[in-house]
Design a protein around this nucleic acid. Structure first.
Lengths: 344, 344
DNA sequence: CTGAAAGCGCTAACAT
DNA sequence: ATGTTAGCGCTTTCAG
């Protein structure tokens, strides 16, 4: 084991001062070319690397970004992380990932530990439990500490920070309209519970489209899935409810607020030998991997996770590097796009 | 914006020395109860938090783990990361994620930047390009620096570090045997190029099972997919090749070394109206989300990513916390299990 | 041209 | 019981 060499050691070996070494390695013209070359050669030979921690302490910045997300085993979030990591790496930033697992407590804990010097700024998507509780003190405190925060996808309006969202409402409205244009008026919506902002917005879009077309919404045609992160149990509940609805109601289309809901619905429809899309069409949010390999393949609304990740990272890094002012808050809206496949 | 208070500031405010503050906050009996209480109260009131960076510099450890993986938008890897993150968090470690994107150069770069003080140890799965090049100098150098490394899934035998792998060969053998026991003797193998160790081992297992049953392997029944991370293009190539093979050869089973290959095969079979599993059975490695939602659902071999992640993290943290010796290298083997679904 | 010294925030051995 | 000092590795101002 060969420990990394330090400036001090180089200085001792070459009988110069630490500051001479430091300056030489930075090619400062203060130092004679001769010594500079000698020192640089020595440093290279001994594979000198500056210690990032010492630099961080000195510069009061770590060049790392904290990302707090509800889940990692999730197509959309993993795409966003990937894209954040990519953009950050290109700009010399590392990425620390912390998972809240949809828990308020873990989210707070993650934020507090990382805020103690580990990171220069946060990119996050808020946990469901936090949305339910409506307690955002940890985020506010972080911002007050002068640590910039960028929120994406699951966002709170009155927080003083940058935000990157998707035009959920509009996209849901358009998807619903597409179904209506296809002469489908009995559209079942499978959505999440009310406190999830995106689910809510999508529901609003759905309702608005119905209204615009003079269709009276039927509360029996809205299934709200109690969501604890797509566990098997809730999917069964969803399937049962769907079965019931299929028996009691005429349905000719389904709009799902995420891929798992749509895939579960697909399963039920196939079991009952319902023809898709002839009898029932399906469109779902979240353009994940299931949609591409299910049969029929599912039409989806892509939230463009790569763009979200990149925009979020850019907003944050622009702040960290002083390109934009700390008190300037932008909200970027990304347009979803409907990807037509076999199910509609 | 309220900057975080430091020991020095507390000391100044209360007219004591920095070390008195430091000791008080650690409840050292060296300090009188009275001052201790006073200082703790003041610190609490001002929401004092120790600066992790300063601690890292002092202690020469960062309490963070570097994870370098080939891809993040990948069911298996995201499960492993999730599990690493969970175990690490429970043990007071943060996790920095870096993605090699299967590139040698990026892997080296990631490793070198993180090795300069950012992390206490690495958990990694080697990029395909690195495996192809057989150049592991970066890993060796990291180990020589005294930074422990744990390799998982894609592993190199002669590296002096801990490893966590799966019994790929045995699992492939057993899966093949299952198919043979079901009276299927014309088994098509869809695998990756030779340099990917896991693909290789799985191929070996397949061949061994054939041999054990006196079946002569047919090179036309082995498709090697040129792999650049499941891009659309290669999947088309695979599909074309599969079509050709289906025309020229009798096939009654398919073994895929990963889910994407199997799902692509499934697509082709369905297009040709081949009954699954009656005419052709399918088993694939990687128990991902596609398998559970495809129709028919796919029988898979689970590599137990959660266990892999947890074991890897445990091996590393045990080393970092001195529970195991730095020169003790373990290789843990996790048993795959066959998950029977509709396709076999 | 080179070096000494202070300081980033904290700890701990060693005075007092 | 409290304080002084040195030091973790580095940068930078100021002196020489």
């Amino acid at each position: 084991m060969i420990a990394r060499i330090t400036l001090k050691e180089i200085a001792n070996e070459l009988n110069v001062s630490i500051s001479t070494v430091s300056k030489s390695l930075k090619d400062s013209s203060e130092i004679s070319l001769e010594t500079r070359l000698k020192i640089k050669a020595f440093a290279k030979a001994h594979n000198y690397r500056p210690n990032n921690i010492a630099l961080s302490l000195k510069n009061r910045k770590t060049k790392t970004i904290g990302v707090i997300i509800p889940e990692i085993v999730h197509h959309f979030f993993s795409i966003v992380i990937n894209s954040i990591e990519k953009f950050s790496a290109e700009n010399g930033y590392n990425v620390i990932i912390a998972v809240s697992n949809e828990s308020f407590e873990k989210e707070v804990l993650n934020m507090e530990t990382l805020a103690n010097g580990n990171i220069d700024g946060f990119i996050m998507s808020i946990a469901k439990e936090t949305l339910k509780k409506q307690d955002f003190h940890h985020i506010k405190e972080t911002i007050d500490l002068g640590i910039p925060v960028v929120l994406f996808d699951r966002v709170i309006n009155d927080l003083k920070c940058d935000k990157v969202i998707v035009n959920d409402k509009q996209a849901a409205k358009e998807a619903t309209q597409t179904l209506i244009d296809d002469n489908r008026e009995n559209i079942l919506l499978i959505t999440s519970e009310d406190y999830v902002s995106v689910g809510n917005l999508r529901t609003e879009g759905y309702l608005e489209a119905l209204k615009d077309n003079g269709i009276i919404p039927d509360s029996h045609l809205i299934i709200k899935v109690k969501d604890n992160t797509g566990s098997q149990i809730e999917m069964n509940v969803l399937e049962n409810e769907l079965e019931k609805t299929l028996k009691s109601k005429k349905i000719d289309a389904i709009l799902g607020v995420n891929e798992i809901y749509a895939a579960s619905a697909l399963k039920v429809l196939k079991k009952r030998n319902i023809k898709i899309p002839q009898e029932i069409a399906i469109i779902s949010f979240t353009d994940g991997v299931i949609s591409r390999y299910s049969s029929p393949t599912l039409s989806t609304i892509s939230q463009h996770g790569e763009i979200m990740g990149e925009r979020s990272a850019k907003l944050l890094i622009d702040k960290l590097t002083g390109k934009t002012d700390y008190s300037d808050f932008k909200t970027e809206i990304i347009n979803c796009s409907l990807i037509k496949r076999e199910s509609s």
